[in-house]
Design a protein around this nucleic acid. Structure first.
Length: 578
DNA sequence: ATAGGGTTAG
């Protein structure tokens, strides 16, 4: 009977049939074997596979003597569903319980470390693997490479990879997807691209390789690389599935190439929920909000049930177009679809309401929401206070933010800018001094990327290093005087006790401007530039790029974490709503 | 006898 249950549950897990799983679960209870370690482990697996972690954990908790497989299944489940902290807690509990270690379990705890970006834990599990002499196992080795790459320890990832006697597709994938998953910092995206082109010389890539590397192209806005990989995919004759198709669509959308995105979308035999979510999100990101809303209806007509990501996409689409009423409607609609809004959805509503200018209403929304507010929500609040120069609400938001995370500099910077815009220079300066004296209040360094030909170049703020040769500097100077004659005014913040000349010079060290100047002098006249940015584009760079697009007669895309900005003839597709 | 690469969103 146990063997029958195991086989049936395996089939259910493969088909992700949650309802059937629950039925079989109840009959296991009636047969009195739900806490048998084999049946129980498979039940855990079923619930994990269907995304119902609460139920999975309840079963797990009911198994009197869970074994390595049981522990591995529940730990992996948490790790793969983005609950890294919980996965790590379980890993420690597992060690305390003295479970016998096997390869699968090591893979699980390494994934837990990776999922919580906890390098020190990962290293201690690496030591555990060595202790049990399992570090040479193929799967353990891959998990190690992936963990080191994801936790930002590039050297160890590459070292382990190089030491492998046989580098399988899976090992390459561990390296590449690890490097790719650095997003949204995508510090190692360029290294991932290099690894990909090396890889295809020696082994056959598979769907997972393509999905990872296409994500890198999306993050870097590397359209040429993306195109080449697309071509390679077709030539390779790999029978690619919907998942690769979805990654291609996402890549073209992120690069602002809606035409190619549609081409791929139209060749797919059918769309799944990820395709819909991807296109809805991508359309919203490019400002095609009507089309995004239309696709939502079409999704329902196709009997595809929206999930919480769908509503993330649709709410942010509404936000991009200032559709407050629509946003509220969708927020209620998701409840009707049986999806409880999560903190991300509430944060998007705050952004949506604030963006439309209703600051009081947004603050009310934050204060009365049934979930505990988080940094993102109050940050959205402060962003809009800053934009609309509302010192009162801005101050209140700021004090919440500082309590939540005193070491995050972005709240200080926003508040200080807000004071400065309100003419309260002393308060601004005071705050800047506090920020500088607060240990560790560091602003995430801005980075911009631009692809010229097949090479992706990286720039950081103020980098006057090897990348920035004389001609780029000269171009920046030229733009600086040219733009002023064409109506561009530098966004000078008089706080921090600097002169306006110094302030203005600093604006010209922003990485977006450097990337654009580099692009202008290294590409043919009239060709399109695509720049990606790891943060939101600043208001000054946004205005400057509008002017540049006119003066230089160039189409310019800046893809930031928020949306695709398409500059043509002095205007941006976001209509200055950024 | 039971698990074990990854897509969208934030």
């Amino acid at each position: 009977m146990i063997i029958t249950y195991v086989n049936v549950l395996k089939a259910i897990a493969d088909g992700a049939a949650l309802d059937v799983g629950r039925t079989v679960h109840s009959s296991a209870i009636m047969d009195g074997i739900e806490s048998d370690v084999f049946v129980g482990s498979m039940l855990v697996h079923v619930y994990v596979h269907c995304g119902s972690l609460e139920e999975a954990y309840a079963i797990f908790n009911n198994i009197p003597s869970p074994n390595a497989v049981t522990w591995g299944t529940i730990i992996c489940g948490y790790a793969e569903h983005g609950l890294g902290t919980e996965a790590l807690l379980l890993s420690k509990k597992m060690q305390e319980n003295g479970v016998e270690i096997d390869q699968g379990l090591l893979v699980a705890v390494l994934k837990a470390s990776e999922s919580s970006s906890c390098l020190t834990q990962g290293q201690s599990f690496h030591a555990l693997a060595v202790e049990w002499d399992m570090q040479h196992d193929e799967l353990v080795g891959n998990a190690l490479i992936s963990m080191y790459a994801t936790c930002g320890n590039l050297d160890d990832a590459i070292n382990l990879f190089n030491k492998r006697p046989h580098r399988s597709t899976m090992a390459w994938n561990a390296l590449i997807s690890g490097l790719a998953s650095q997003s949204p910092d995508y510090v190692h995206g360029r290294e991932a691209l290099t690894a990909f082109w090396q890889m295809i010389q020696v082994v056959q890539p598979n769907e997972i390789t393509y999905m990872s590397i296409l994500k890198v192209c999306s993050n870097l806005c590397a359209l040429n690389q993306g195109n080449m990989i697309h071509a390679h995919l077709i030539e390779g004759g790999l029978r690619w599935e919907l998942k690769v198709g979805n990654a291609l669509i996402a890549m073209y959308l992120k690069c602002g190439n809606l035409e190619y995105a549609s081409c791929v979308a139209n060749t797919l035999p059918s769309w799944d929920i990820v395709t819909f979510n991807t296109v809805i999100e991508g359309f919203g990101r490019s400002g095609l909000v009507k089309q995004a809303l239309h696709l939502f209806d079409e999704m329902l007509r196709n009997n595809i049930e929206p999930n919480d990501s769908t509503f993330i996409s649709i709410l942010s689409a509404c936000s991009h177009d200032g559709l407050v009423e629509k946003g509220h409607e969708f927020f209620e609609l998701m409840k009707l679809h049986g999806i409880g809004p999560k903190i991300d959805h509430y944060d998007l509503m705050v952004d949506l309401i604030g963006r439309a200018g209703y600051l009081n209403e947004a603050e009310d929304f934050l204060e009365t929401m049934p979930l505990t507010t988080d940094f993102v929500g109050w940050m959205a609040m402060l962003t809009h206070c800053n934009r609309l120069v509302n010192v009162d609400i801005g101050r209140r938001s700021f004090s919440v933010l500082v309590k939540m995370d005193p070491s995050n500099a972005s709240s200080y910077v926003l508040m200080s800018n807000l004071y400065a815009d309100a003419g309260m220079l002393e308060d601004a300066e005071k705050l800047d001094n506090i920020r500088k004296s607060t240990n560790g209040a560091i602003k995430k360094p801005g980075k911009a990327f631009i692809e010229i030909g097949n090479k992706v170049h990286e720039f950081s703020v103020g980098c006057r290093g090897q990348d920035l040769s004389g001609p780029v500097y000269a171009k920046l100077q030229e733009l600086r005087s040219q733009l002023k004659q064409n109506g561009y005014k530098p966004h000078i913040n008089m706080a921090q006790g600097r002169s306006s000349k110094e302030e203005e010079s600093m604006l010209w060290e922003h990485c977006e401007k450097i990337a654009i100047a580099f692009g202008l002098i290294n590409t043919a006249e009239g060709s399109t530039l695509r720049v990606s940015k790891n943060l939101r584009v600043c208001s000054d760079c946004h205005d400057a790029t509008k002017a540049i697009s006119k003066v230089e007669k160039r189409e310019i895309f800046i893809v930031d974490t928020y949306r695709v900005h398409h500059f043509v003839g002095g205007q941006c597709s976001c209509q200055d709503c950024y």
